[in-house]
Simulated scan of single mutants.
Amino acid sequence: MRLYLTALNPTDAVLDGFLPAASRLGLPVTVLTDQPENWPPHVPVQRCAVRDPAAVVAATTAGERPAALLSNSDHLQAVTALAAHCIGLPGKDPEAARRCKDKALTRQTVAAAGLDTVLSVIIGPGDDPGRTASRLPYPVVVKPRAGVASEDAYLVGDADELVARITEIRRRRPDPALVVEEYLAGELRTYDTLGDSTNIVPVGGWRTGLGPPPTFTEQTLEWAPPAADPAAEQVRAQLDALGVSFGASHTEYVVQDDGRVRLIEVNYRLIGDRMDLILAELLDIPIFEYVIRLHLGEPLTALAVPDPGSVPRHALVEYVCADRSGTLVAAPGAVDDHRDGVRLHCRPLSRPGSSIHRTGTNRDYLAVLHAIGPGPAAVRDTLNAFRADLRWEIS
Rank of each mutant, 00 (worst) to 15 (best):
R236M: 13
G272Y: 04
H42G: 14
A378D: 10
A377Q: 14
V320S: 07
L8M: 15
S150H: 02
A59L: 04
E281Y: 08
S395H: 15
A241P: 04
T106R: 03
A146C: 13
L383E: 02
Y138V: 01
K101F: 10
P176E: 00
W223G: 03
P40N: 07
L178M: 01
G247F: 10
L70W: 02
D284K: 07
L5N: 09
S23G: 13
T359G: 12
L115I: 07
T167C: 13
R145E: 12
D307C: 03
R65F: 12
E318Y: 11
A49H: 14
L184Y: 03
T80E: 03
A228M: 13
E281C: 05
A84G: 08
G114D: 08
F246D: 00
N38S: 15
P40M: 09
G91N: 02
D340W: 10
D323G: 15
P20I: 06
V317R: 00
D336F: 13
R269A: 00
A227S: 15
V203K: 05
L178E: 04
K92N: 12
V320E: 15
V118Y: 02
R172E: 11
P20E: 03
Q108C: 10
A322Q: 00
R343F: 13
S134D: 13
D34S: 14
I264L: 11
I285K: 10
V335H: 08
R131Y: 12
R358Q: 11
E318P: 11
K103S: 08
N9S: 15
A49T: 14
E168H: 15
L19K: 00
S73P: 04
I394G: 00
R172W: 08
A97M: 06
D192I: 05
L366F: 01
T220I: 09
V141Y: 04
H338E: 14
E281H: 08
L115H: 10
P308A: 03
V201L: 03
L162C: 00
A59C: 02
D323H: 14
H338T: 12
L70T: 04
L69R: 08
T30R: 11
A111K: 09
E318I: 12
G114F: 05
Y191K: 06
T220S: 10
R207H: 10
D127K: 07
W223T: 05
R24M: 11
Y268H: 04
V342I: 01
I169W: 01
A322L: 00
